[in-house]
Nucleic acid binder design. Structure first.
Lengths: 181, 181
DNA sequence: CGATTACGTCAGCCATGTTGACTTATCCGT
DNA sequence: ACGGATAAGTCAACATGGCTGACGTAATCG
């Protein structure tokens, strides 16, 4: 399979010798690309498993966040995923129809349909999480636990400032590891 | 906007007091979610800019990798993006039609259509990269340069072992910063 | 010369996102 | 108690970007 890249770019805009120190104004292409490659492989991990239920990645995202946040409101989920009510509606209906998620009327506000996973839903969510955590576990072994911790801080800092408080709270439960900064 | 999460999960499977040390077998949910949130916001950065040309994220990925790897072969691009020839064909045609990318016959193998960005293509690629690098720059400021370096190592380790050599070479050019391990 | 390779393309389908309009039930403030 | 705002669901139509399968053409390689 196509393994070698044919030609490499000359440094942008000059014919001088390549600088040893990188241009501080040059975009951090390496981080951009590593983010792409890491995410690409990370999400592909569970595709097969999902396909077995006729599900896709959208179903996984919903199942995951409901599993991790029992009683989540629909509006919260929309805000997490940044998709429309209609898009969510489709995948949510399928998850409910197939018995992975249930909706319960809110106790204090009966307009709300709070989301919970069923036993079946929890089992699937956990299985998918285990698959993906193998890759993460190997990555931490390879790069060292400090790199994992630093990656946590870096990734958190990549989140939009306006979203950080929400993300901090969402992520907090699974994180008795020290603060995010 | 929905800001507070209604209910939080009890620790899975028990009613004891929450452990201070996390279960070492528990999936690293925080990293999984941070990866999602960071990627979500990172790719959204350029959506508006792309829409101005009638482009989407698929166009961006193609433009980026061609810009960074002039003379890239179509087969290489397919292998990077992990999509089919037909999917790539559509977006590539649009990029070519609108004068952002050109294809040149390979010198040694005339079956190849090597890919290059035009001046126009390079300008757009650079503008998009600048937008995204603002977020990364702020993240590095916030989390510290060591966190950025560690994130590089961690993200590289997240890449599939079978893909690492290719990724290492692709990422190498923009990286006079020290090895990836 | 024949098999393989690199690339392109037609046709159709699927998953998942979008807008816009509308309904229903409920809550909350006056 | 009423009326506006809010939470959620739904219908319809459409866009984007994946996919499979089948084929065609040109060039290379053994």
């Amino acid at each position: 399979m196509a393994d070698v890249i044919a030609g490499r770019a000359a440094s942008r805009g000059g014919s001088e010798a390549p600088p040893i120190q990188p241009d501080p104004d040059a975009p951090p292409y390496d981080l951009m690309e590593l983010l792409f490659f890491a995410y690409r492989d990370f999400v592909r991990d569970v595709d097969e498993e999902l396909a077995g239920f006729g599900f896709g990645r959208a179903h996984h995202r919903v199942l995951h966040f409901v599993d991790r946040n029992p009683g989540l409101r629909v509006a919260d989920l929309l805000d997490i995923l940044k998709i429309t009510k209609q898009s969510l509606g489709r995948v949510l209906r399928e998850l409910v129809d197939q018995g992975f998620v249930v909706q319960r009327e809110g106790a204090s506000d009966r307009r709300q349909r709070l989301l919970f996973v069923t036993e079946r839903g929890d089992a699937l969510a956990l299985r998918l999480a285990h698959i993906q955590s193998e890759r993460i576990g190997r990555a931490i072994e390879l790069s060292g636990p400090e790199a994992g911790d630093a990656a946590r801080r870096f990734l958190f800092a990549m989140v939009d400032p306006s979203e950080r408080e929400q993300v901090r709270q969402l992520v907090a439960l699974g994180r008795p590891r020290g603060g995010l900064g």
